[in-house]
Simulated scan of single mutants.
Amino acid sequence: MQSAVEVARLVVLAVSLYASAGYWNQDYHTPKLSGQEWVNELLRSHLNCIRTELRVRLHL
């Protein structure tokens, strides 16, 4: 019974955080990079980064 109450509390907490304005207003691109620096970072970073940002694979 006590674990069900704890699960319910966690669900309420998760829903309230998800619904809060701060959750949706977080910046995605925070670094202050020039265009060339940003491209260099994409080329040097994890392979999925360039795919996420540009929707292309690195070999293209």
Rank of each mutant, 00 (worst) to 15 (best):
G35L: 04
T52W: 10
V15D: 14
N25K: 03
A21Y: 06
W24T: 13
N40P: 00
H29G: 12
R57A: 02
N40L: 09
L58Q: 07
V39A: 08
L33F: 13
R55E: 09
S3A: 08
L47E: 11
E6V: 01
A4Q: 06
E37C: 07
L13R: 12
N40F: 01
V11N: 00
V7F: 03
L58K: 14
A19E: 13
V11L: 01
D27K: 04
D27A: 04
G22V: 04
G35A: 11
A8D: 00
N48A: 15
A8R: 02
E53C: 10
Y23E: 04
Q26H: 05
R51M: 04
N25P: 01
C49I: 05
P31F: 01
N48P: 00
V39P: 05
H59F: 01
H59K: 14
R57T: 06
E37T: 10
H29L: 15
T30N: 10
E41Q: 15
P31L: 03
V12A: 07
H59W: 09
M1L: 01
V11F: 01
T30L: 05
A4V: 03
Q36S: 13
L47V: 09
K32V: 13
A8T: 00
A21D: 11
S34R: 10
A19I: 05
L54D: 08
V39C: 07
L58H: 12
L13K: 14
L60Y: 09
V39G: 05
T30M: 11
N40M: 08
L17V: 04
R51C: 07
V56D: 00
W38K: 13
A21S: 14
L17P: 00
L47T: 12
T52L: 14
C49F: 12
V5E: 02
G22K: 09
I50D: 11
I50K: 12
L60C: 08
E53V: 12
L58I: 09
E41I: 04
A8M: 02
I50N: 11
Y18K: 00
N48L: 15
H59A: 05
R9Y: 02
A8V: 00
L42H: 11
M1N: 06
C49E: 14
R51H: 09
Y28E: 13
